[in-house]
Structure formats: C-alpha cells, structure tokens
Nucleic acid binder design. Structure first.
Length: 274
DNA sequence: ATGGTGGGCGCCCCA
C-alpha cells in the first residue's frame, strides 16, 4: 500500500499579506506539506488558526519581525528537528522536521524536510565591497559543511529559496547574468559542488533536463513579466538519491505569478509515492 | 535606458 505525498515550496513574500494566495494553492493543489519562505512574520502573529482549519494541524515555524522567516505547514504529523542558525546570526532562514510516515515504505526512516532561505546577497558580486555577498558565500560554506559529504544518503529533501540559479538554462540569459548576483560563477560552482558532494538529486532537473528553461522567479520590476519572461530558477528541490524512484511529478506553478498581488516567486510542487 | 516594483516598518531597511 503506497500513499501519495504532495510537497510544495514557495517564497511567499509576507504570509499575512498573501494568506489568500496560500489558501488558493491549498484549494487547487492540496499539498500535504507546504514549505514557505520569507514569511516576514513573528511566530506570535503567524496565521496558524486559518491554516489549521484547512487541515494543516502541524505547523513548524521560525519567524522574526520584518525579515526572512520560514515555516512548514503539514497535514502529516512530524517531529521538529530544529531551526539552525547560520553564520552566528539570529536570522530565521531554516526549519527542519521529520515527517512520520507510518504505514509507508518510509515508516522506518521517516522523511526529513529541510526548508531553507539562503541570503540573496545584495547587488555587487564582490565579497570585499559587499558584506551581503560575503554573508551569502559564508552561508554556502556553512551549508556545505552541514549537508556534508554523502549526507544525502538519508531519506531527506532540501527545499526552499536557495537564491542561486545554478545552470545556464536556469536563467533567461546566461551571458547577461554572469555578473549578476544569483548566477555568478563562484555561486553556481559552489552550489553544484555542495549538491554533488552531498549526493543530492536535483529533482526539478530530473524531470525537466537541460536545455529546457526552468524559472521559478520573475522580478517585480518588469513592465510585463510574462512577455519579457526574464526568469530565474532560484527555488529548488533536492532529495536523497534513494528517493529518486519515488518521485512521480514536478510542477512549477507559473500561473501563480499572475495571481492578484502575487509573490515574485511561484510554488514548486512535487509528488512522491511513498 | 543604469530605472523599475513590492514587502515590512516607521522617515529606510530588504528583496
């Protein structure tokens, strides 16, 4: 007996302002687990009761006032595995849970879900001139040490806004973005090294190989985001290699960029048979 | 063409 597990990740850019969009996602796609980034909401003000009413009885959050913030909404019970602080800062950029999947093929291990919001890194891709970029690189170094060599061997998924578009076909113009933070060689090479050394599967690219373009983010600053289509794949789903045969679908909800008062990121939804 | 828009918060930070 297998069950379908639907998992979504979305940088929502204010969970309070866009609660109706989260509800729309729930109504249309019914994810079992929703990982949100940039909730911009202290835990005490999180709209938990609205979400609990919709079946998300298990909520893990790591919020702060004004900036960052991550949360995991789940219809499946879990145990929290912690909120990690990176770079000695109190930034709310990670929350982890272990889903209880009793009665499935993952009953023994559970499924670890790590929800991450990697620093954007500012405008100037120079760690000396721009401390935000230095912070991003330091965050990646810590991420590499934490995920560790071969750590993808467990039953785990890493999702979130990783703020790097690693492949040439993850951006609208590889050449034009080589000096743009999110697609510089130091970022893209480090990103792929972390993923490969940890033996993580790039689930999105497993479903849609290069050279097909994949984007999850379109800037607010374009007059017509869809016509210009200057997107980037900043949001990711990584998985332990052993989970590879369990994934049955991956969808980037491009239409969500056209919803009323949208986030600049759209949800990525994957399904697993576990 | 070196802008543009959109959050939270409070007179400016961040994306």
């Amino acid at each position: 007996m297998t069950r379908t597990l639907t998992l979504a990740t979305w940088n929502i850019n204010s969970v309070r302002l866009r609660l109706p969009l989260v509800e729309h996602l729930i109504a249309g796609w019914a994810p079992d687990v929703i990982c949100l980034q940039e909730t911009k909401c202290p835990d005490a003000n999180f709209p938990s009761s609205s979400l609990t009413k919709l079946g998300y009885e298990h909520i893990a959050m790591n919020g702060q006032k004004g900036y960052h913030g991550v949360a995991i909404l789940s219809r499946i019970p879990f145990s929290e595995t912690g909120a990690r602080n990176f770079c000695g800062k109190q930034d709310s950029r990670h929350i982890g849970v272990k889903l209880d999947l009793a009665g499935t093929s993952l009953a023994e291990t559970g499924l670890f879900v790590h929800n991450l919001y990697v620093p954007a890194g500012g405008d100037e891709p120079d760690p000396v001139a721009n401390e935000k970029f230095a912070h991003k690189l330091a965050f990646l170094a810590e991420l590499e040490a934490w995920l560790g060599l071969g750590s993808g061997a467990d039953a785990a998924v890493i999702v979130g806004d990783l703020n790097i578009a690693p492949l040439p076909d993850d951006v609208w113009s590889h050449k034009k973005l080589l000096d743009v933070v999110s697609h510089t060689p130091i970022e893209t090479e480090t990103f792929e090294k972390i993923r490969r050394d940890g033996a993580w599967l790039d689930v999105m690219r497993d479903f849609v190989p290069v050279p097909e373009k994949l984007y999850t983010w379109w800037s607010y600053r374009a007059a017509d985001w869809s016509a210009a289509d200057k997107g980037r794949r900043l949001d990711h789903v990584w998985a332990s290699p052993g989970l590879k045969p369990k994934f049955t679908s991956m969808e980037i909800l491009r239409e969500a960029r056209g919803w009323d008062r949208p986030s600049d990121h759209v949800p990525v939804i994957v399904k697993l048979e576990v």
